[in-house]
Computed example of a mutant assay.
Amino acid sequence: MSAWILLRGLAREARHWARLPDRLRSRGLMGEIVCADLPGTGEHVRERAPASIAATTDFVRARLAALGHAPPYRVVALSLGAMVAVDWAQRFPLELERLVLINTSLRRYNDPFERLRPSAWPLLLRAAWCWDARARRRAESAIHTLTCRRADERDADLAAWTAIYQSAPPSRANAFRQVLAAARFEGAASAPCCPTLVLASRNDALVDRACSAKLAAVWGATLIEHPWAGHDLPHDDGAWLADTIAAWAGNALTVALPSTSA
């Protein structure tokens, strides 16, 4: 049975998925669920992050093989991780069976100010300025404000995210290389060969939802928008996300309503 591979975004790691793997299992998804860290994050925090998406893809593929996982895979990926997934699907089409892309963009199709909203720059700069351990909670606060719309557990989120950073701190230099890789990534002109679900959050303050809409239109892929979530859709409405992936994977005709409101 094909494994589900989960890929996170910029300077985030497996633990930032929080309850999503358990939610996916509870929806009856068949196959192992593997949260794979990108180089420079999580269990690979001491690795140098490549300045290209292709090299990042190659790293992930090699690590999965070393751990005994074999394709074909089903990939769920967010933001930068979704760029890795696109590159993977385009360069190694026989290795992926299904693709779920969340709040991502490609240089080939999306304008720079759509890929990174100008209004996001102040909070991004604050996070970069407060990157180290002494000011880390302030960095996580900026990230939370920028990427999340559900704030009912903000204090708990900040405590958890700060603890994750302290146990495996991604370097500022690695984060910069990831940004560079994302900015340069165009992707191939061809659409992924496997069934592709594109998910977008209407209240994404980091990446314009138009990016996802353009990708889905060009590729003829399924597009579903969440009405109130922010960039970190797994955080804001993980229950809806798990329901939606499970429905799509099972070829169901209905999609769950959002579980909570902003």
Rank of each mutant, 00 (worst) to 15 (best):
F92Q: 11
F92C: 12
P93R: 09
P93N: 03
L94G: 10
L94I: 02
L94Q: 12
L96F: 03
L96H: 01
E97M: 02
R98G: 14
V100K: 02
V100Y: 03
L101C: 04
I102V: 15
N103V: 03
N103M: 03
T104R: 04
S105G: 01
N110C: 15
D111C: 07
E114L: 02
E114D: 13
R115D: 00
R115L: 06
L116I: 12
S119I: 11
A120L: 10
A120E: 03
W121I: 08
W121C: 04
P122R: 03
P122Q: 02
P122W: 04
L123M: 11
L124V: 13
L124K: 07
L125A: 09
A127W: 01
A128P: 07
W129P: 05
W129V: 12
C130H: 08
W131P: 05
D132S: 14
A133D: 09
R136I: 04
R136D: 12
R138P: 07
A139H: 05
E140F: 04
E140H: 05
E140Q: 10
E140R: 01
S141L: 15
A142D: 03
I143R: 10
H144P: 06
T145L: 11
T147E: 09
C148K: 09
C148N: 08
R149W: 01
R150W: 07
R150D: 13
A151K: 07
A151F: 12
D152P: 06
E153H: 14
E153K: 15
R154Y: 05
D155V: 01
A156E: 14
D157P: 00
D157S: 03
D157R: 03
L158Q: 05
A159Q: 11
A159S: 06
A160D: 11
W161G: 04
T162E: 04
A163F: 09
A163S: 14
I164E: 08
Y165W: 10
